[in-house]
Amino acid sequence: MRILIVALVAALAGCTTVAKMESGEQTVGERLVVHLEGAWNHITGPGIGPAHTWTMEGLPIDQLRIYVGVKDGETVHQPGSSGKLKNFSFRANMQAEDVVAMFEGVLTRDGSVFKLVKLEPMSFAGQKGFRFEFSVIRKVDSVQLSGVGYGTVVKGELYAMLYAAPQLGFFARHQRSVDQMARSAKLKM
């Protein structure tokens, strides 16, 4: 009966499920370990992925995408409904600028406007990596978002985190937590 209720709720919610990611050490995608200072919501369901998608405030507001071991040729977003828009895929030989350009393409696929604010070197997951800051004007509602991303390419696979939230209020509220999480990231070999 309990399973039936869970299944019914899941069906009513369009099969989207929310799992609480508790404070402390968490393993993402079996290969990336991060330390959380507070709880996050892990969202799964149709139309979400291939990144592990977390949120503090709910998906229309803020979104943390965690990419774990993306292989050469793999697409880093959900396919669009029109089918005409180009997919953005990771290539093993991408440099930091190329990875940023790939995420830029993903974030502007709907006609949104992206601006790179800063790209700098940073150790991520114990590897030589990069950190970038950006702003986005979201096409669907003209909301101005701020964002931060982290990445590294290890043995031809991409490990990255991408967080974006409305510039007013929300981004500043969670930026420290995201930064701390990125700095705590390590690979589970």
């Binding site: 930091a96 600028e97 800063k118 700098e120």
Partner: peptide
Amino acid sequence: APDAAMIKT
């Protein structure tokens, strides 16, 4: 340039 720090490395 926004990526100046990266380029310097």
